[in-house]
Design a protein around this nucleic acid. Structure first.
Lengths: 241, 241
DNA sequence: TCGCGTCTGTTCACTTGTGAACACAACTTT
DNA sequence: AAAGTTGTGTTCACAAGTGAACAGACGCGA
């Protein structure tokens, strides 16, 4: 595994630091819906989504419903980022968009952090961004309409996978947002009528990104700015988006 | 400052570890509404709320509105918990309930962490709880009614300050939840009619905690369980609540 | 004790979102 | 090609929440 993986955190490492993660780090293919952690699991492995892969944090609710809080793609990683492992996971985390993930034992990562200050700092910075993402998500859920949140969600899925076709049923989207399915369909209908997107079975095809952005809340932008500030000069420039 | 402060994190430290925080750590009195950090500030100081003091994370919105995401009381601390300092703050944090705060430079705390593994572990564990709190808040805002969230908020303020009288205007409560004031008044009216609480000017007096708990969502309990699990045997037993 | 600013209770017309329901379309399996 | 399963579009009666409005209550300062 000498070549650069398509993950911003890993690419931000200098070769010497990246070398510290070998031979423990390895690429894995993960299918849609696959579980990475369940609440209560001991977190012993960290996953780095590569390319278009996406992971999703889900919070189980008392009545069995699950709500998504954040998406993590190539800009980050999941598993022991804050806890540094060996603590029970609070959320369920699953693969929302299938593809390649780099996988590493948390304990190996901690050993590497102890050896390289720069590596440790990078993960601290990312952890701070993760917190920002969650705080923003909390505020967003409190005050933004379903329409704005739906638009935000579609955009962020699209931007991270780099594909205008977002594979997602109305039901799933509704579940992510924690809202009713029929209303989601209605929102999508208005988007469709205004030419923002087309709907396919189990997917939607974004036609007019700018117009869709205008309907979405700005929460993602706020978080992206924090990523830029905190990881400025850490991520290689061409990956900053 | 030899005596034990009324903060769970600090009390969980063995004397030798607590000694590492001296002489940098000092007690301060902070007034209601005082600002601890603004977005973009460099976080150079960590505050430990003592006794009934409360700090609150606020996320500014594009239209100037601010939404609260979490409250932090004697169970925790604010400032550089995850970022470890020298990164710009993402949220505004202010004093929601006045009182004593222990104050320490983040850099001094980091030096102490480097000297004591147990101390470092304690803060890692708390950081993980903080994340859990935020994730839960996000989910809660997405799916729980204003009534349930209002009840939750009042309970958690009450439990942390240990006083049945919660000083808070309807306007403030509405602001915290990110909702309209008039609806908040209506919710409080029904609580009052059912004998759950009485309303005073700029305050509410909780009369029937159990009944109020029944109207609140269980989000706080879920988070509390995580605190118990993660900090089990770390916090002294008598402080675990 | 008077006046003023703030907080409260309540109303009203309106928007947003719910949840169940049902016909139909699109894929899958055999 | 038939049967079954899953997703879609749409309706409907209803619940939850908004935001402006206003009268009056409270408590402070002069």
């Amino acid at each position: 595994m000498g070549e650069q993986p398509e993950n911003n955190l890993l690419r931000a490492l200098r070769p010497a630091d990246y070398a510290l993660l070998h031979p423990g780090i390895e690429a894995q293919q993960r299918a849609r819906g696959e579980l990475l952690y369940n609440p209560g699991d001991n977190v012993e492995v960290v996953y780095f989504p590569c390319g278009p892969s996406l992971a999703s944090y889900l919070v189980p609710n008392e009545d069995g419903q699950e709500v998504e809080t954040i998406l993590v793609g190539r800009e980050g990683a999941v598993g022991g980022i804050v806890s540094r492992g060996h603590l029970p996971a609070y959320c369920r985390i699953l693969v929302k968009y299938p593809g390649k993930f780099m996988r590493l034992r948390v304990s190996d990562l901690e050993v590497a952090k102890a050896k390289s200050h720069a590596l440790a700092r990078l993960f601290e910075r990312y952890a701070d961004c993760l917190l920002a993402q969650m705080v923003q998500s909390s505020a967003c859920n409190a005050i933004h309409s379903i329409e704005r949140r739906a638009a935000k969600w579609i955009l962020s899925a699209m931007e991270r996978t780099g594909d205008h076709l977002v594979p997602l049923t109305h039901e799933e989207l509704a579940g992510m947002l924690g809202v009713g399915r029929s209303y989601t369909s209605r929102v999508l209908q208005t988007f469709r009528q205004e030419g923002l997107l087309e709907t396919r079975r189990s997917a939607m095809l974004v036609k007019d990104i700018d117009a869709l952005r205008a309907r979405a809340c700005r929460c993602n932008d706020a978080v992206k700015m924090h990523f830029d500030t905190v990881l400025e000069g850490v991520y290689p420039a061409e990956l900053e988006a």
